[in-house]
Design a protein around this nucleic acid. Structure first.
Lengths: 215, 215
DNA sequence: CAGTAAACTGACCACCAGTCATATTTCATA
DNA sequence: TATGAAATATGACTGGTGGTCAGTTTACTG
């Protein structure tokens, strides 16, 4: 009996279509200015139908954020491949994150929104949980890379993999966020985003790299 | 003719009273849940009056953020005093920022909100501009401290004061932001906020401190 | 005691997230 | 093929909110 399966498949497709439409609308107008009526029109559905697939506007945006995290995870996996040492991999991840921000600024924004607006997992919506679990995957990937670097001697052995991953993630996110309004800070100086980020990655390199590599 | 002056004084006082009321309401319920009617009631004024003093709800929140930045600037100034070297001052600022977050989490939140929701200065509200100029003051203070450290040999001489200040500010903010939902990441590990932040400051110390101090 | 300017009011408007009674479509069963 | 039940979809409606504005009150002046 393949009918139930087809129904399930169609339900998934509809869900995907709604997220596609929502991306279009949310990314074009921004979350605050976009309305659920806009999304409904873009999806060629009535507003009520949207609420059969998503708990709320917020939940729908979380679904987009989940996509965003998935994309990011893919980029990280790719960046890590072909890098010889743990430290090299960590650097590659650092730049992959920046590329991500530049290539998918709207996804970046959505992921950020999720990070800001998530509280206790107990009362989280389904898509919020999805984001959380995917976020854990990314975090795990980073922590593993740090461990690898410790093992191969390219990263300071006294570092704590999980803590280091968390620190790098937070710091990099902070740097990227400040880029948007840095013009207000650096009055006369002409500083490009690239320079600022490279500056940051270099600094983190100083902090993480194993100096006593002559063991 | 002191009447105009008194009028001006009273206008300022009313403005202050409104911000006081808004802080109470916004901090208690959070920006999204708090309404302008709530603020009006707390201020014992009609809603319309609020709009004689502030352009919008957002603008009113910016006024609170401006207070927050002022408080922060005071803490930084105090932290810097009595520290012998530039690097010591930088460290003191790092911990002062964390203290600020712990002591005035609501101000921290308001400042963050401003940083996220500010775009081009051209179409900024008056209180938004206020935040920007006060932000520049804090940034300037930090940049000066870095310069001082370079001059007294405690900070790497090749560092760029403004860029370094920006990097540290962004990174520290990112770390603090990630604290709020770190539990989702560090599943089993028991990591306190204090530990995480100390970990971060230590790392930044590695990155900034002048290793060749035996000149 | 008018006249006027500033401060203040609150009913009102436009807009929007979310709901729900109703309608349509799909499919199993006889 | 007819029937009805389950799944899916609809859109008018509601409650609540940011912001407005015509009118009122208050404070001062000549």
């Amino acid at each position: 009996m393949g009918i139930a399966e087809r129904r399930e498949r169609e339900r998934r497709r509809r869900r995907t279509e709604i997220i596609d439409a929502a991306e279009e609308v949310f990314f074009a107008k921004g979350i605050d200015d976009a309305t659920m009526d806009d999304v409904a029109e873009a999806a060629e559905l009535s507003k009520g139908t949207l609420y059969l697939y998503f708990e709320s506007k917020e939940d729908l945006y979380f679904a987009i954020a989940a996509r965003g995290i998935e994309v990011l995870h893919g980029l990280f996996s790719e960046a890590v491949r072909e890098q010889p040492t743990g430290m090299d991999k960590l650097n590659a991840i650092g730049y992959a994150y920046y590329d991500y921000y530049k290539t998918y600024p709207d996804y970046f924004q959505a992921v950020l929104h999720h990070e800001h607006n998530t509280t206790v997992p107990a009362e989280a919506t389904s898509n919020e949980r999805l984001c959380l679990s995917q976020g854990r995957a990314v975090h795990g990937l980073m922590a593993n890379v740090v461990q690898e670097g410790i093992d191969d001697g390219t990263i300071r052995p006294e570092l704590h993999p999980q803590l280091t991953a968390l620190t790098l993630w937070g710091a990099a996110t902070g740097i990227i966020q400040i880029m948007a309004h840095k013009s207000a800070m650096l009055a006369s100086e002409e500083v490009s985003d690239d320079l600022l980020y490279t500056y940051f990655v270099t600094a983190m390199g100083f902090a993480m790299a194993n100096v006593a590599e002559h063991t």
